[in-house]
Design a protein around this nucleic acid. Structure first.
Lengths: 131, 131
DNA sequence: CTGCATCCTACCAGATACTG
DNA sequence: CAGTATCTGGTAGGATGCAG
């Protein structure tokens, strides 16, 4: 894909893919798709995420211009996160990918089951050979 | 996204995203997009990949039904890897994502530069405060 | 409430050496 | 040629404690 393109851009593609690959990024983006959210709201809705990971994830997304951070200098502090235009447009290809997995979910599952079954058989054969 | 859907499928979505996130999967899929390739061909074309990682990557993709493995029982051994139909169709959303990054590459880069610049300034302010 | 710093662990990529 | 087996360093990420 990157053969006849700017290698710098391919670098960025890899980076964004790696970003998507981590456990939390997509979940956070999806949550923010419903509208701006406070830090603790996100912490609650993205079940299982640690404070640290939420902070790190949001920082990365903010740096890439996907998410916008707004601090209300009140006490107690209130910080809101929202998708930028860029972030919203990023959601589209992500959803496309999610959609693909949904439609092909069954084929993937059966492929895995078949593979695992074959491997068990192979393991059995190996045992026979060894015995 | 997964709110009103089968949680099992969402699990699969996460898994596939994680798959995409790793360093080599997408590269391998792209290489195979040009047609079937032997193990050592892939090793050569996917620059920097180790034997071990190539094996692992191909096994995962084979398990998910993305890649098909054909052994020719000759000597020396010859093993060919090819995309399945599922694999080829998987390429589409991936390309869509790659395309998105390409088109928005500049915005991402400037967002990052801005963010980093702001942070340097902040760091400077902190130092002033501390001094 | 938000978020940084620190510590600690488990896991994984990479290198190397060996096998059919 | 196409793998497997084993070791090791680096890192992602959770838990905890402190601060503004």
């Amino acid at each position: 894909m990157c053969d006849n393109y700017d290698p710098t851009k391919c670098q960025t593609v890899s980076e964004m893919l790696a970003r998507l690959g981590d456990k939390w990024t997509v979940l956070v983006i999806m949550m923010l798709g419903d509208g701006p959210q406070r830090f603790s709201d996100l912490k609650r809705s993205v079940v299982g995420i640690s404070q640290r990971m939420l902070t790190l994830t949001l920082r990365s997304l903010e740096r890439d211009g996907i998410v916008e951070r707004t601090v209300h200098p009140t006490v107690p502090p209130k910080v809101e996160y929202a998708l930028t235009d860029l972030g919203r447009s990023f959601g589209e290809p992500i959803r496309a990918l999610g959609g693909w997995v949904f439609t092909h979910h069954d084929r993937i599952q059966t492929a895995r089951a078949d593979f695992d079954r074959r491997n068990e058989v192979d393991a059995g054969n190996k045992l026979i050979k060894l015995g």
